[in-house]
Design a protein around this nucleic acid. Structure first.
Lengths: 252, 252
DNA sequence: TGGATATTATTTGTATCCAGTTTGGATATC
DNA sequence: GATATCCAAACTGGATACAAATAATATCCA
């Protein structure tokens, strides 16, 4: 079960619980980007009253995961005009954060990072994209905790959540041929290990460099997915479609 | 009247109005950092019911201006352990943002920036610290709009709000001797003009450099204020306090 | 007199209710 | 048949009523 949620249950208030549930559904794409949130339905399903549901929605709007669209509330969606901004900010924050992590990590941080890294590598065996991206997110969160200042950590977490959604969105709409076992996944794991090594060694420059590389790698995967290029495009077999007269051979 | 608030009234909903009012009171230090928010009192004064007041509080908690302290809600306060983080993040975001602004500014941005710059300089004549810091904030917001991506702008705005509060807090608790007309103020205005020039010229490197200088200047003013050093500390006249026996001369 | 427990009061979280507004559908008229 | 108008239903924002939890005070016993 996914749990990217901050308040990992132990939820005291109903409002917190509902908040976590809706958030999870948004991040897991169960609530599709752009779809409207039906408050009444959530009230019905959850069994609580409108008040805690409304609080949850208010918070999610404030965080940017939901947004008010005139009268109704929608799940925030992505458009291409945001892509540049997102990657730009991710690059900036990621590099700075990893540099700081290398300079400030404590032994406890290293332990937590290593554990998260191994969880990711374990997940990389099984072909579950959702769990994998979640493990990846959690690894980067551990790193962020290791060194980022509280402020930077918060910003980086916001960006990371954003990219998690973006990644899943691209996975759904885009090309999803054989990610598990792919070259990209191998490179990702290598990056993680390099990041860990640099941070463990306290090498800020190296951490910065690898973080940069890692962000580029991520960006290229997404763009490739979006553009539908599954590696070598030349391997396509263009075959005559049945039921077309010979003269109907289309250009392209 | 201060108006650092985003939704500059025209607020349709009661909740929005209350949100803006509370936010303003927090930023203006009318609601002191650390003090508890009395929901009932706000309900009484505003004349609306608990529902919109609660919505406002929920949003402000989500933004970090308020925070839940067990049962009650307090105005977020500063402690010295945050200072490093704040300046670190401010430096990072400020430099990046100004660089982007130089690379992407449109004519409309330049107009707005120039107007805000002149408002600041006009305020610099009158000795009103609150209005001055607000004009300063608004200038930097215009710059941020000029070039920062939507994401970066949001982060920078958050930091800027944070530093605005920090600045006012330091002004209240710290040394406040003759800021208006001071060397620091002159340097601030010069920085603003240099920033504008660099951005107008599209010189990203220069914008970055000046932004860095400006952030250092700001940081040094705050630390000086906090440490209570009003310029040359040697000018203190140490005089015998009346009503103390000669042997009672305290160490420091 | 001091400490502990019980009771009360205040505050916060939740539920329900009400009013205003908007949307969808149905009917009537052109 | 199409369009316009009106009515109804549903939803949102806001108000209030209710319940639960915590804090404060008072009383009783040692």
């Amino acid at each position: 079960m996914g749990n990217v949620t901050r308040n990992s249950d132990a939820g005291q208030r109903n409002a917190d619980r509902i908040y976590g549930e809706i958030r999870e559904k948004i991040l897991s794409m169960e609530f599709a980007p752009g779809s409207v949130i039906d408050e009444a339905a959530i009230v019905q399903k959850s069994g609580v009253s409108r008040t805690p549901v409304r609080e949850a929605i208010i918070r999610l709007v404030s965080e940017g995961l939901l947004l008010r669209d005139g009268r109704q509330v929608r799940v925030a969606s992505f458009d291409i005009s945001q892509l540049r901004d997102v990657f730009e900010s991710l690059m900036l924050l990621s590099r700075s954060m990893h540099r700081l992590a290398a300079l400030r990590r404590q032994p406890a941080h290293l332990t937590a990072m290593w554990r998260a890294l191994q969880v990711f590598e374990a997940e990389a065996e099984a072909p579950d994209e959702v769990r994998l991206s979640e493990a990846n997110h959690l690894f980067h969160m551990e790193v962020s905790k290791a060194g980022a200042s509280s402020v930077l950590h918060r910003f980086y977490e916001t960006m990371s959540i954003e990219t998690l959604r973006l990644s899943r969105q691209c996975f759904i709409v885009g090309d999803r041929t054989g990610y598990v076992g792919s070259e990209h996944l191998k490179q990702t794991m290598q990056d993680h290990r390099d990041l860990f090594a640099a941070i463990e060694a306290g090498d800020g420059d190296e951490a910065d460099r690898v973080a940069q590389r890692h962000t580029v790698l991520f960006r290229e995967r997404l763009t490739r997915q979006l553009l539908g290029m599954s590696g070598d495009i030349d391997s396509f077999r263009l075959q005559e479609e049945p039921g077309l007269e010979p003269s109907g051979r289309r250009s392209r």
